Simulated scan of single mutants.
Amino acid sequence: MQTFSKRVSMTVVKRLPKYYQYLTDLQDQHIEKISSKELAAMMGLTASQIRQDLNSFGAYGQQGYGYKVKELKEAIRKILGLDLQYNCIIIGSGNLGHAIVNYERFKEEGIHFKAMFDVDPDQIGKKVGDVTVYHMDDLDAFVAHHKIDICILSVPQKVGQETTDRVVELGIKAILNFVPLDLTVPDDVVVESVNITDSLFTLTYLINEEEENE
């Protein structure tokens, strides 16, 4: 995986998947080149912001020509590490876990789900697609025999931190967290949290703010 200066802000890093998605869409439309101005208009940014973001990772594009869509997409794919393969587990085999496993795009980008874990006896032994649901008692042994890069956490809030502690002890260094909880982890473990409740409550605020301003 490529490494870049830590001076690249997380704001820029978090825009990279959006660049990748737009460039993928452009390539699917057989568009071969695009200017920073055109890309900025699509993404709701400025042309200078596009150039500044991309220059953080190297020299891309040509003045007066713009960017070659395929080349820029592949460059961002490598920056995101999507040219590599990742083994994932999901803890919590509810509806959210099922939806994640069944999303075909992840396989296309080298993200492979190796197992799901739960404590519900009705779930143990079932398959979600080609992924088996195991009991949490089997977690340690499974991770010991498989190289797991990412853990997706979708468990009740009351067991969120203790489950995280267990995952960290097993040596997993990346967690995608769907638990509405600020997890505490060591400095060498990265956590990306997705709080659907916060997003919905933000929407309810914005709806009411708009109505008050009418």
Rank of each mutant, 00 (worst) to 15 (best):
L176E: 12
K14Y: 01
I124S: 02
M1N: 12
Q2Y: 15
T202C: 00
T46M: 02
I150V: 09
T3Y: 14
P156G: 03
I90R: 04
K158F: 13
E32F: 09
Q85A: 08
M10E: 14
N177C: 07
S35N: 09
A75E: 01
E210R: 15
L72N: 03
A41S: 12
S36C: 03
H98C: 06
L84N: 14
V8G: 03
K33A: 12
G129P: 13
G97L: 06
K18A: 10
K78A: 08
S48D: 15
V119Y: 11
S35T: 15
Q27P: 00
A144N: 13
V13G: 01
I111W: 10
A75D: 01
I196N: 02
K173S: 07
E192G: 02
I76G: 03
L84R: 12
L23E: 09
R7T: 15
A75H: 02
L153I: 06
L82E: 00
V191E: 08
T202A: 00
V119E: 05
I100S: 01
V101I: 10
H112S: 08
V168A: 02
S154C: 11
I172T: 10
A47Y: 11
L176P: 01
F178K: 00
N95S: 03
I50R: 02
K147T: 10
D165S: 06
V101Q: 00
V190D: 09
A99C: 00
C151V: 08
S193H: 05
I196K: 05
A141Y: 09
I111G: 01
I34F: 03
K33N: 15
